[in-house]
Amino acid sequence: TRVETATETAWISLVTALHLVLGLSAVLGLLLLRWQFPAHYRRLRHALW
């Protein structure tokens, strides 16, 4: 049971790290898009909202 718990903890930390990385890359990508294509971003936002 001790090994299982350790594996579970490792998986949880791995998944958390993955989610953090994905979230950060998504935010960075959005910022980059907004910085590179302001007109396109505004049009996209206008279409979405």
Rank of each mutant, 00 (worst) to 15 (best):
residue 39 A to W: 06
residue 35 W to E: 04
residue 10 A to M: 13
residue 33 L to R: 02
residue 24 L to D: 00
residue 44 L to M: 10
residue 15 V to M: 09
residue 19 H to L: 15
residue 26 A to T: 12
residue 23 G to T: 10
residue 37 F to I: 07
residue 7 T to F: 08
residue 48 L to H: 01
residue 38 P to V: 11
residue 27 V to H: 01
residue 13 S to N: 11
residue 18 L to Q: 02
residue 30 L to W: 14
residue 20 L to R: 01
residue 33 L to I: 10
residue 23 G to E: 01
residue 26 A to I: 14
residue 39 A to E: 15
residue 19 H to G: 15
residue 19 H to E: 15
residue 10 A to T: 08
residue 24 L to W: 03
residue 1 T to Q: 12
residue 47 A to D: 05
residue 3 V to D: 01
residue 9 T to M: 15
residue 24 L to Y: 01
residue 26 A to L: 15
residue 11 W to H: 12
residue 37 F to M: 11
residue 22 L to Y: 03
residue 44 L to W: 07
residue 20 L to F: 07
residue 15 V to E: 04
residue 7 T to G: 09
residue 27 V to P: 12
residue 8 E to Q: 05
residue 8 E to A: 03
residue 46 H to V: 08
residue 37 F to K: 13
residue 40 H to C: 15
residue 12 I to H: 07
residue 22 L to V: 14
residue 9 T to Q: 09
residue 12 I to P: 09
residue 1 T to Y: 07
residue 2 R to Q: 13
residue 5 T to E: 01
residue 49 W to S: 11
residue 25 S to N: 04
residue 10 A to D: 13
residue 16 T to I: 15
residue 34 R to E: 00
residue 33 L to Q: 00
residue 14 L to G: 09
residue 14 L to C: 04
residue 46 H to M: 10
residue 1 T to R: 08
residue 4 E to S: 09
residue 46 H to S: 07
residue 3 V to N: 01
residue 5 T to V: 03
residue 8 E to D: 08
residue 36 Q to S: 07
residue 47 A to H: 06
residue 31 L to C: 10
residue 34 R to Q: 02
residue 21 V to I: 14
residue 32 L to P: 00
residue 36 Q to L: 07
residue 13 S to Y: 14
residue 4 E to L: 05
residue 17 A to T: 06
residue 19 H to R: 06
residue 21 V to K: 01
residue 20 L to W: 08
residue 11 W to Y: 12
residue 29 G to K: 01
residue 15 V to S: 13
residue 10 A to G: 13
residue 43 R to I: 05
residue 28 L to G: 14
residue 45 R to K: 12
residue 28 L to K: 01
residue 46 H to K: 06
residue 28 L to W: 10
residue 30 L to C: 12
residue 33 L to K: 01
residue 47 A to N: 05
residue 4 E to M: 08
residue 31 L to M: 13
residue 42 R to G: 11
residue 15 V to N: 08
residue 2 R to N: 08
residue 44 L to G: 02
residue 27 V to E: 00
residue 44 L to Y: 03
residue 45 R to Y: 05
residue 30 L to G: 07
residue 34 R to F: 14
residue 31 L to T: 12
residue 43 R to K: 15
residue 18 L to Y: 04
residue 6 A to H: 02
residue 8 E to P: 07
residue 38 P to S: 09
residue 11 W to I: 12
residue 25 S to H: 04
residue 47 A to K: 08
residue 45 R to G: 04
residue 24 L to R: 01
residue 47 A to I: 05
residue 28 L to V: 14
residue 6 A to Q: 06
residue 11 W to L: 11
residue 40 H to T: 14
residue 22 L to A: 11
residue 45 R to E: 03
residue 15 V to F: 04
residue 28 L to T: 09
residue 35 W to N: 06
residue 22 L to G: 11
residue 27 V to T: 04
residue 15 V to H: 06
residue 6 A to G: 10
residue 21 V to E: 00
residue 26 A to M: 07
residue 12 I to A: 14
residue 26 A to D: 02
residue 36 Q to D: 02
residue 49 W to L: 04
residue 32 L to R: 01
residue 35 W to S: 05
residue 18 L to T: 10
residue 14 L to I: 15
residue 35 W to T: 06
residue 25 S to L: 14
residue 34 R to K: 14
residue 39 A to C: 12
residue 43 R to L: 06
residue 44 L to H: 01
residue 6 A to T: 04
residue 16 T to P: 07
residue 6 A to P: 02
residue 14 L to R: 09
residue 26 A to S: 06
residue 15 V to T: 09
residue 44 L to F: 09
residue 39 A to N: 14
residue 29 G to W: 07
residue 18 L to A: 14
residue 17 A to F: 05
residue 42 R to W: 09
residue 29 G to T: 10
residue 12 I to Y: 14
residue 8 E to M: 05
residue 23 G to W: 06
residue 39 A to Q: 15
residue 21 V to R: 00
residue 29 G to M: 13
residue 37 F to V: 08
residue 18 L to K: 05
residue 22 L to E: 00
residue 36 Q to G: 10
residue 48 L to I: 10
residue 27 V to S: 06
residue 35 W to F: 11
residue 32 L to E: 00
residue 22 L to N: 00
residue 25 S to Q: 04
residue 13 S to H: 12
residue 11 W to E: 08
residue 17 A to C: 15
residue 11 W to Q: 07
residue 37 F to D: 03
residue 7 T to R: 08
residue 5 T to S: 02
residue 41 Y to M: 13
residue 21 V to L: 09
residue 33 L to V: 11
residue 23 G to D: 00
residue 10 A to E: 11
residue 8 E to K: 03
residue 10 A to W: 15
residue 39 A to S: 14
residue 5 T to H: 02
residue 29 G to Q: 00
residue 46 H to L: 07
residue 46 H to Y: 10
residue 4 E to W: 04
residue 45 R to L: 11
residue 34 R to S: 06
residue 34 R to I: 13
residue 17 A to V: 08
residue 33 L to W: 15
residue 27 V to L: 12
residue 23 G to P: 13
residue 28 L to E: 00
residue 14 L to A: 07
residue 17 A to D: 03
residue 8 E to G: 11
residue 16 T to L: 15
residue 6 A to K: 07
residue 39 A to Y: 11
residue 2 R to H: 05
residue 41 Y to S: 06
residue 21 V to H: 00
residue 35 W to Q: 06
residue 33 L to A: 08
residue 30 L to T: 04
residue 6 A to L: 04
residue 47 A to W: 10
residue 24 L to I: 13
residue 38 P to K: 10
residue 22 L to H: 00
residue 28 L to C: 13
residue 43 R to E: 04
residue 20 L to E: 01
residue 44 L to S: 02
residue 35 W to Y: 11
residue 35 W to P: 04
residue 19 H to I: 15
residue 22 L to I: 10
residue 38 P to Y: 09
residue 44 L to D: 01
residue 9 T to E: 12
residue 32 L to M: 08
